[in-house]
Amino acid sequence: MTHPDLSILIIDENRIRASIIEEGLREAGHLRVAVLHDVNEVGRTIEAVVPDVIVIDLENPKRDTLEHFFSLSRAVKRPIAMFVDRSDGASIEKAVEAGVSAYVVDGLRKERVKPILDMAVSRFNAFSKLARELEQARSELEDRKLIDQAKGILMRTRGLGEAEAYALLRSTAMNKNRRIVEIAQSLVTAADLLGP
């Protein structure tokens, strides 16, 4: 709340993540927050927004393009330094590990910018955690579907009950030192190949 007047530009092709960060910055009292999804628009936007801080995801392949825009820009007059402070190794590493990079107009005091970067880093991490959990839930659901299919095949072809079919899958997996879902996948593939 202390310095709500900084102009911040977020560049992220991932719209959901961009809005999560934007929301975080607004909650922290930053009102001048602009969001871009395409680096190519920076050339135009930078003149209008005149950002003090630019946040971009590290996976964006156009970081080189962005840096080149800076070197040409009249709006960002002073050279732009990355991260808060070159000497602050720990926070730089934290940012890179989270997958976020920030450019800061030279001359801004560290204490003004650090909360912004910290916010971006924690929101990036929260987003990654969310994405991981979502992926895990999705793959668990798919695993369960596969196992159900495999059970169905065993019940049909070998006349087993559901519990027996599952027990057979499990014991086969244990004997072969593989996961149940892998055995289920092999069975489903084999059944597909052999036809109805």
Binding site: K62, D64, V96, S101
Partner: peptide, 15 residues
């Protein structure tokens, strides 16, 4: 990596 900027920065911080 996806950009020379990432190579440069991740080499600089020791990744």
């Amino acid at each position: 990596e996806s950009s020379w900027a990432n190579i440069r920065d991740r080499a600089a911080i020791g990744h």
